[in-house]
Design a protein around this nucleic acid. Structure first.
Lengths: 149, 149
DNA sequence: GATAAACCTAGCGGATTAGCAGGATTTTTC
DNA sequence: GAAAAATCCTGCTAATCCGCTAGGTTTATC
């Protein structure tokens, strides 16, 4: 029940784009350096984030990446679901049709429980936007205890 | 961000023990059959659950397993943490000491965010007991729509 | 045209997952 | 006491995923 580095790196990278957003596009290289992520690995993640429409890219020299939407409209849930697949503790097959065969005697009760858990976790992740994280970070560095907790 | 079968099977098996608890110990074999889990695989899971003190075992013929505590006192969080390891989206290293080196520029703000998420997810899982699931299941089968949603 | 960047495809070592095999041990039952 | 029923234990394996690297192609800027 833990994120792989995909989700973690992805969120950090998106946060980095949000922090450094301005006129110019931001090179993958600089994100990778600041966030201490393998450049080549980050390429793959950005490819997926782009395909999912969360970021835009600019090719060629002086090119780079940009958030596709303002940070207020991008949640951690958006990012994590793209990079890690659907956030669900177990398959909530019930959604699809309804009358599927329950192989295990407990699956009926459990199914609704798993769905409940899934919804609650998604709701947590969907209620944290990049903007919030940026604000949190600005607050911290403003108060002078960046790099410490 | 999904459970492996370990956690899922584990919860189902524990639920099964809760459902069928009585005087006699419950054989692994019957749990495996009812919940449609490989017997040999379930052995491993039960070994861990036993080591963690969530179940007791009775050896020999007519032996089997029993919950170590009443279903009201066993949460899904208990089970999942035993079988899947700590539930945390990312390492919350901040807990340990404090002044560790932040390798990435965003880790400070993110660290507290990850911890917040971790705590909320754990709280979800710790607020669902086996007793609740059993009650849910009884309600369902009582109302005659077992095997359907 | 040189350079800087995104883009693309492929592979690879290691870890984890899900499960199987085969026995050893303990207890009950006949 | 023998057989059976169960837990316990150790090790193996095929498949998959993870994190990362490699090496090139395309597109834009200077």
């Amino acid at each position: 029940m833990r994120l792989s580095t995909k989700g973690r790196y992805g969120v950090h990278a998106m946060f980095d784009l949000a922090m450094h957003s301005g006129d110019a596009a931001i090179a993958l290289k600089s994100v990778a350096q600041r966030e201490n992520i393998s450049e080549k690995y980050l390429e793959h993640l950005f490819a997926n984030l782009k395909k999912a429409g969360l970021i835009h890219s600019v090719r060629g020299a002086q090119g780079g990446y940009r958030l596709a939407r303002p940070p207020e409209e991008i949640t951690l849930g958006d990012i994590i679901r793209v990079l890690e697949g659907p956030v669900a503790p177990a398959e909530c097959k019930a959604e699809a049709g309804g009358n599927e065969d329950c192989h295990s005697s407990s699956s009926c009760a459990m199914r609704s429980i798993w769905c409940r858990i899934r919804d609650e976790i998604n709701s947590i992740l969907d209620n944290i936007t990049l903007a919030e994280v940026v604000e949190e970070q600005r607050k911290r560095s403003g108060q002078g205890y960046m790099f410490h907790i």
